[in-house]
C-alpha cells in the first residue's frame, strides 16, 4: 500500500499538481486586479525601456561587431523568450531569502513531495507572459527579415534551443537564490545575477577571451541567447558549443537543483 503510494509520485503526478495549483492561483489572482494591471504595465514598461535602450544604441551605431540590426534584433527577441520561463515559473526564488531568514521556509519541508518543486510551484508570475509576447514579436520579425527558412526542422530547432536556453537563466537564478542558505545578504547575489541577463542579448564575440570563457563556462549567460542563436544566424559555421547547448543546459540546471537542495539540507532552521 505504501509502496504503491510512493511509486505514483512521478512526473505525471507533479505535472498534475502543478496544473491544479496554477489554476487555483490564476483564479485568486483575478481578485487582485489592480496589482495585476500595475504589474503587467511594469513588465511591459521594462520591455519598452529595454527596447528604447536598444534603439538608442542603434540610432548611434548601425552595427556591432559585424552583427547588423536584424541579427541583433533576433538575438534580442531570442533572449526575451528564453528569459520568460525564469520569470513565469521560477519567480518564487526571489522570496527564498526572506522565507529562510524568517524561518517560514520550514513549512516546505513537511510535505511528502519534492521541496524545490513545492516551493517553486507556489508562485506563477503571469506578467512574464507580456515579455513572452514582446519577445516573440521581435523574434518573428527578425526571423522574417533575416530570411531564415520556415521548415519543420528550423521550427523544431527553435523550440528546442529556446527551451534549453531558458534552463541556463533558471539555473543561474537557482544558484543565486540558494546562496541565502549560507550568507545573510544574498539579495545582492540575486540582483547581480539578474542584471547579467541584460547582456544575454549582446553577441558574446564582443568580449575578450578571458571574459568569453567566464560567460561561457562559469556564469554561462552566453548560452541564454548567443550560442543557440548562432544555429540560426550563421547556419554555415555553427560552433560545437551551440549544438551542445541543450545538453549543457540540462546538466547545468540539474547542478543548480542539487545545489539548491544541498542548501536546504545544510540549513539549520534556527530561525524560529
Amino acid at each position: 500500500m505504501e509502496l504503491a503510494r510512493e511509486r505514483k509520485r512521478g512526473l505525471s503526478f507533479y505535472l498534475s499538481i502543478y496544473r491544479k495549483i496554477l489554476i487555483q492561483d490564476l483564479k485568486s489572482k483575478m481578485s487582485f486586479r489592480t496589482d495585476f494591471i500595475i504589474s503587467t504595465f511594469g513588465m511591459v514598461l521594462t520591455n519598452v525601456s529595454g527596447f528604447i535602450t536598444f534603439m538608442i544604441l542603434f540610432h548611434n551605431f548601425p552595427s556591432v561587431n559585424g552583427w547588423d540590426y536584424n541579427h541583433m534584433l533576433f538575438l534580442y527577441g531570442f533572449s526575451l523568450i528564453a528569459l520568460t520561463p525564469v520569470q513565469c515559473f521560477f519567480d518564487n526564488n526571489w522570496n527564498l531569502r526572506f522565507m529562510v531568514r524568517s524561518g517560514d521556509f520550514i513549512k516546505y519541508c513537511f510535505r511528502p513531495i519534492n521541496v524545490f518543486f513545492y516551493f517553486i510551484s507556489e508562485v506563477f508570475d503571469v506578467k512574464g507572459l507580456g515579455q513572452f509576447a514582446f519577445g516573440l514579436g521581435t523574434f518573428i520579425y527578425a526571423w522574417a527579415h533575416i530570411g531564415i527558412p520556415v521548415t519543420f526542422v528550423t521550427i523544431a530547432e527553435a523550440v528546442l534551443f529556446l527551451m534549453t536556453a531558458s534552463l541556463f537563466m533558471i539555473a543561474l537564478m537557482n544558484f543565486a537564490a540558494a546562496t541565502c542558505f549560507w550568507i545573510i545578504n544574498s539579495g545582492y547575489v540575486m540582483v547581480i545575477m539578474f542584471r547579467f541577463k541584460d547582456f544575454a542579448k549582446y553577441p558574446a564575440s564582443i568580449f575578450n577571451s578571458v571574459f568569453r570563457f567566464i560567460f561561457t563556462f562559469i556564469i554561462p549567460i552566453a548560452f541564454v541567447a548567443y550560442y543557440p542563436s548562432l544555429v540560426f544566424v550563421t547556419p554555415d559555421r555553427v560552433p560545437l558549443l551551440s549544438w551542445l547547448s541543450p545538453a549543457i543546459g540540462a546538466l547545468f540546471f540539474w547542478l543548480s537543483y542539487k545545489f539548491w537542495m544541498l542548501g536546504v539540507r545544510k540549513y539549520d532552521f534556527t530561525g524560529s
Binding site: I183, I184, N185, Y188, V189, I192, R195, F207, I219
Partner: peptide, 22 residues
C-alpha cells in the same frame, strides 16, 4: 553582511567588464 559586501564588489567588477566590452 560581510560576504554580501564582497559579493557586491565582485559582481560590480564583472558587470563593469561587461559594460566595457559592449
Amino acid at each position: 553582511f560581510r560576504l554580501g559586501t564582497a559579493v557586491m564588489l565582485f559582481g560590480n567588477l564583472i558587470y563593469l567588464a561587461l559594460v566595457y566590452f559592449l
